[in-house]
Nucleic acid binder design. Structure first.
Length: 569
DNA sequence: GTAGGGTTAG
């Protein structure tokens, strides 16, 4: 078989299994000159199969005995194009360490990876290496470098790199323009836009998104109308802009008006609906495009997971794990799935995900570890959660919050408080979720004064306590026997309390046999949440405890009348 | 075959 024939077969018909067989043949017959060709063809196919082949590509590379600059650069490029930036960088530095000199393809892919994961050190190191490699004059490399600095927000250096490019092309200009836009420097961006010798559709798109970032939709629309040609990205930028301004209906009108939509348009709309809790609209859009893109899956799974519809999230995730699925889950899909497990308290499913990750060689990063911390903590396995927490590269707000909540629900209030203090000391500013966690930890051990301090601290940080925070505080006061104070706190609330807050008060009354306040609490509960029968029996118990049997029996009778059968449950 | 828009965790 000739090389070109083999190439054609691979390119057109390659499946993972077939490629594996061919690769075995090559290894067995010691045909190493074929390896580079094989890898190139696999990478071509990989573009169609995305995550499905990534594991396989890596395994091929593991088998490859002669690692030349060509196969390394192909793989680095492949990884960076498929969003596997850490892996791309790992391979880059590995190749570099084993004496393979990177070519311009490897360099630009590595720089792109650094930019995307905001790895400043990595980019700086590559910049340093460039001097020795005599690649400083290659416009691709220079533009990648420029893009790296502008994505990291260092526009001074970016500008310097740009000035040194001898033959600037439109992409170089666009990267500089995009940098100013991302940096929020609209004046400079406009200057560059005026100065550019040639503008293409990307330049116009950048300017449009410059205005949408500044929430100046009028200017954005004006520019949008004046564009000589429009791409998907032009429309998507407008859709995105209206979403950020909270005008979802206008965004939808633009979305519907698009002459042709691409997958990005769908993902943008789906995640907007997701954040607004409109799962049905998201699902409708998803159904129009299902199984079309890995990121589409991710967006829909995240949508379910973010809106307390964990079962549906996992159903969709299951589709991806099937042997013949078109897309295999990546880290983001995994994060959402783990979060769904956590909501269901299903640690068994979580363990399956963990072994699935091992099987595919997906490394645990901080993001994933944080999802697992939450899962294990909610399932009561604090040892495992602590272990993961200790192994984190960096402890950020979300990780601390997950641990604090975990300690809180597992009765380790002291640890929660310690973590909270540690977090504050390291300069991390807590948010609403953190306060919920720490407040419930105080509640768990009955630290009333600390609870009040926490309320004050929240307000000092500019947060208005939510209904949840008030519920926990009322709960805390009730447990401490301070029912009247709890009632006073409710009366001081700036907004109308929900049933949950009154419910917490009612529970407090039960603990303290406070009939007077209980009647008020129960009345409010029933008004706000008339379908629930729990309040009746709670109040009945309070009457009974106070010796008011008549009232208790009257209420119990009412339960029978109202919802027949419910008392049997 | 190289660079420029989209999605994760509490």
């Amino acid at each position: 078989m000739t090389l070109s024939k083999l190439g054609n077969i691979l390119e057109k018909f390659l499946t993972v299994e077939q490629a594996k067989q061919i690769h075995c043949q090559i290894v067995v017959n010691d045909l190493h000159n074929l390896e580079a060709l094989l890898i190139r063809q696999i990478l071509k196919c990989a573009a169609h199969y995305s995550a499905r082949t990534s594991h396989y590509v890596r395994s091929i590379l593991g088998h490859t005995r002669k690692r030349d600059a060509f196969s390394a650069s192909c793989t680095i490029r492949y990884l960076s194009q498929n969003g596997q930036f850490e892996e791309a960088l790992a391979l880059y530095s590995e190749s570099h360490a084993s004496g393979i000199y990177p070519n311009s393809f490897a360099i630009s892919s590595a720089l792109k990876s650094c930019a995307r994961i905001l790895c400043k050190m990595g980019g700086l190191m590559i910049h340093g290496q460039l001097q020795k490699l005599a690649l400083c004059e290659v416009v691709f490399v220079q533009t990648s470098l420029l893009d790296f600095y502008s994505k990291l927000g260092d526009m001074v250096v970016a500008r310097k790199v740009f000035d040194e490019i001898r033959e600037k092309n439109v992409v170089s200009w666009n990267s500089l323009l995009g940098g100013y836009v991302k940096h929020g420097d609209l004046a400079m961006a406009q200057g560059v836009f005026e100065e550019m010798p040639v503008r293409d559709v990307v330049s116009w798109n950048s300017m449009v998104s410059g205005y949408t970032r500044g929430k100046d939709m009028e200017q954005a629309y004006d520019l949008f109308c004046r564009m000589p040609e429009r791409s998907f990205a032009s429309w998507n930028a407008m859709v995105c802009g209206y979403i950020e301004c909270g005008k979802i209906e206008v965004a939808r009108r633009f979305f519907d008006a698009m002459p042709e939509k691409n997958i990005v348009s769908y993902i943008t709309m789906i995640s907007a609906y997701s954040k607004l809790g409109n799962v049905e609209s998201a699902k409708e859009l998803y159904d129009e495009q299902r199984e079309n893109d890995l990121l589409l899956y991710n967006a829909m799974i995240a949508c379910y997971a973010q809106n307390n519809r964990a079962k549906e999230a996992l159903q969709l995730f299951d589709e991806m794990v099937k042997p013949n699925a078109r897309f295999q889950p990546d880290k983001r899909a995994l994060s959402s799935a783990i979060s769904a497990c956590s909501q269901l308290g299903d640690s068994e499913y979580g363990s399956r995900i963990e072994s699935y990750m091992k099987e595919l060689g997906i490394r645990m990063d901080d993001h994933l570890a944080t999802s697992f911390i939450d899962l294990y903590a909610k399932c009561g396995n604090m040892d495992k959660a602590q272990e993961l927490f200790n192994a984190l590269q960096r402890r950020d707000l979300v990780a601390y919050t997950a641990m604090i909540i975990g300690c809180g629900i597992n009765g380790k209030a002291r640890e929660a408080i310690k973590l909270f203090d540690e977090m504050i000391d390291s300069g991390i500013v807590p948010n609403m979720v953190t306060f919920t966690g720490i407040l419930s930890a105080y509640c768990h051990v009955g630290l009333v004064e600390e609870g009040y301090d926490c309320f004050a601290l929240m307000q000092r940080h500019g947060f208005v306590p939510t209904q949840d925070h008030y519920s926990i505080m009322v709960d805390l006061l009730g447990k401490a026997g301070r029912v009247d104070e709890a009632y006073g706190l409710i009366k001081s609330m700036p907004s109308e309390p929900h049933a949950g807050v009154w419910g917490a008060l009612l529970l407090g009354c039960r603990l303290n046999n406070n009939v007077q306040v209980a009647e008020i609490a129960a009345r409010n509960c029933l008004e706000l949440d008339p379908d629930s029968s729990g309040y009746h029996s709670l109040l009945a118990n309070i009457y009974a405890a106070a010796g008011r049997w008549e009232d208790a029996n009257r209420l119990r009778g009412a339960i029978h009348l109202k919802i027949p059968g419910s008392s049997w449950v």
